Simulated scan of single mutants.
Amino acid sequence: MQVMRDSASIRGSVTDPTLAPLIARLIDDLSDYDCDLSQMVHIVVIDPGDALMTIDAELGFQLLDRPLDVIEAHPGWFELTYVLSDDGFGVVVYVPVRPGVDARLIEHCRESIQ
């Protein structure tokens, strides 16, 4: 799992050619706000083999139980957005559609997108 909590990591740490444009789009969407990215969003990128318990501990909530604010499907990825506070701060979770990713998580994403 890759966790990005500050502007530098959000802007520069993704090398996956299918994920980088998704994060670039998110940065662009948030660019209208006059504050540091770390004050608006944290990003979590799930890796194959990550246990749901580990993901939940990192997020501070149970991923499968918390209602989604937005979910989008992209080629090879699900993008899950959770708004955590009234000021708009949130977390965006990128779930790869790959072998080794918890099947319950993939199924949750597929059911939520419908």
Rank of each mutant, 00 (worst) to 15 (best):
Q2M: 14
Q2H: 11
V3T: 15
M4C: 12
R5G: 13
D6S: 04
D6H: 01
D6I: 10
S9D: 12
G12P: 00
S13R: 11
V14M: 05
V14T: 14
D16G: 00
L19Y: 05
L19A: 11
A20L: 12
P21M: 13
L22P: 02
I23G: 01
A24K: 15
A24I: 04
I27Y: 05
I27K: 01
D29I: 15
D29Q: 15
L30R: 11
S31Q: 14
D32V: 09
D32R: 05
D32T: 08
C35A: 10
L37E: 07
L37Y: 09
Q39C: 08
H42P: 00
V45S: 05
D47G: 02
D47S: 12
P48K: 13
G49A: 09
G49H: 06
D50C: 05
A51P: 04
L52H: 02
I55N: 00
D56I: 11
D56K: 09
A57P: 00
A57R: 07
E58Y: 14
E58A: 13
F61V: 06
Q62Y: 12
L63D: 02
L63N: 01
R66D: 08
R66C: 07
R66Q: 09
P67C: 03
L68T: 03
V70M: 08
I71Y: 12
P75E: 11
W77I: 05
F78W: 06
F78E: 01
T81V: 10
Y82T: 07
L84F: 07
D86N: 06
D87L: 04
D87V: 12
D87F: 09
G88M: 12
G88N: 12
G88A: 14
F89E: 02
F89T: 05
G90S: 10
V92G: 09
V92W: 01
Y94V: 03
V95T: 13
P96H: 12
V97G: 00
V97Y: 02
V97E: 15
V97D: 15
G100S: 01
G100C: 09
V101C: 00
V101I: 10
D102L: 00
D102V: 02
I106M: 01
H108V: 14
H108R: 08
C109E: 05
R110A: 13
E111L: 04
I113H: 11
Q114T: 13
Q114K: 10
Q114N: 11
